[in-house]
Amino acid sequence: MSPVRELDVAEITAAVREMCMTANYDLPDDVYEALKTGTQTEESPVGKAVFEQLVENADIARADRVPMCQDTGFAVFFVNVGQDVHLGGGSFEEALNEGVRRGYRDGFLRKSIAAEPAHARRNTTDNTPCVVHTSIVPGDRVELWMMAKGGGAENMSSLTMLKPSQGWPGMVQAVLDTVSRAGANPCPPIVLGVGIGGTIDMVTVLAKKALLRDIGSVPADERIAGMEAELLAKVNLLGIGPQGLGGTQTCLAVFIEEMPCHIASMPMAVNVQCHAQRHKHVVL
């Protein structure tokens, strides 16, 4: 038996507080570089000006410690908990929520979560609850990934239950339909997380998990890499462009996660992400 490592959940709260703030102030380097590249590669003059504004916006946010976007998002976590860790000192999920509460309060971040969505839509006033996807993994570490997911792009996402006979062409069309319908709404240039396979619940989790990848990263599986490249090229032929004002750079990256599915099914989810692709990663 491996020795059990003790970890106080207060450490999780402290890490989460910090992640919420830095995610909103400091655009990750991979996204920043992609925006800088866009100022060179975008063919539309208006689109080029949008890329320049977005680079300047990221610089201001980083320097002034203000959120790059007023929609500071729904806090979404993927957590890998090592099976040789014992979490003490309180509830794990409450520790995450407390970190969100402190981060959004101390960081002057907007509270954007509404309770009783069908009726009262009452603001919970502290941006909780967060969304948590936990996996138990080998080892004695706790690894956290955080995303601040804005509402505008999330609203443009889609879930499609295709017929297996529709195959890859059906999937390509579903992605193009999703992006086309979204147009200017999700704040292009966008990033797409595409989930393929599983069940209706798993496929959307896969799509969201895909968004944790860095722009420029290439999947080990060449087949997946080819699918991502094909989707990116086709989406960028739509002409939507930065902010939907017309242009050649609608999408910065497409990331695919797949898993096996039922013989009768072909689930596909497209999680649309705005250019403010705020994601953070820590290991405790």
């Binding site: 949008v50 504004q53 977005l54 300047e56 916006n57 990221a58 201001i60 946010a61 002034d64 203000v66 959120p67 790059m68 976007c69 007023q70 929609d71 804005g150 505008g152 200017a184 704040c187 902010q243 004002l245 705005c274 250019h275 403010a276």
Partner: peptide, 13 residues
């Protein structure tokens, strides 16, 4: 009019 979505830090100035 459209303003640049996601440029909230810049626009606040």
């Amino acid at each position: 009019f459209a303003a640049t979505g996601g440029a909230g830090a810049l626009l606040s100035r």
